[in-house]
Amino acid sequence: MNDTFKKLFSPIQAEEALKDRTKEFLAEKTQRYIGVRVGKRKHCLYAAVCACLLLMLLGGRWVYFTPITAISIDINPSIEMGINRFGQVVSVDGFNEEGRELSSTLNVKYKNYTYAIEQILNDNNIAALLSENEIMTITVIGPDGQQSAKILSGVEACMTERGNAYCYFATSEEVAAAHESGLSCGKYRAFLELRLLDPDITPEMVRDMTMREIRELIDSLSDGGQIDTSSFDNRGNGHHGHGGGHGNRRRNGRAEQ
């Protein structure tokens, strides 16, 4: 039977014409045997496009969520807001207990910084402190560039109608030193001013003092007074004497550079 089948199937052979047509068909289908490589190139192209989109997405996310400027607000609650390049708040951090409490109640993330400042100024506790003649300092921290100047100008505009408010500009280096001391930028600046008058002052001593208390202490020492160290045991309670003015700082929205 095997022999029969050999004789039966042997004459069935692929015709040369069929083979030629098949070779031509394959050449056409594979674009002369480069089709799949072209396909691979396409895959590479798609992969590159996807990678670019991913990078743009991640880059966009990075651009949006990276603060390039910060606004430090000190009265006694001390908080800092990170501001992205679009002028929107991307982070809110409290630098003392009151600051943390305030930051937890604020709903200003991803909002414009002027809106955020208005919200802070309208907070009941802040409004009460300001009405009691407490001093607020607002420090704009960032590179000495156009955006910082613009934000500082915006902050000043917000503070125009408010009393006892000081606006400053500070560099990122100052902020790093402030954070290292556990102080917000505005308070750190006041601390440096105070330390010039009394080298024994430590950041811990001023951390929970109100800005008004620090200011009054500076004024007192500037006038040749003595520090009443007992006041640090009752942080934030009472004042430390009254002195003269506030040096060359400008009140109500005028910046000190």
């Binding site: 199937f9 692929a14 083979k19 070779k23 394959l26 050449a27 002369r32 045997y33």
Partner: peptide
Amino acid sequence: SEQETIRAIEQYSDTVRR
């Protein structure tokens, strides 16, 4: 490759055809 494919066609085309 084209060379490999043509070799396969020549070698196995009768089997496939049957």
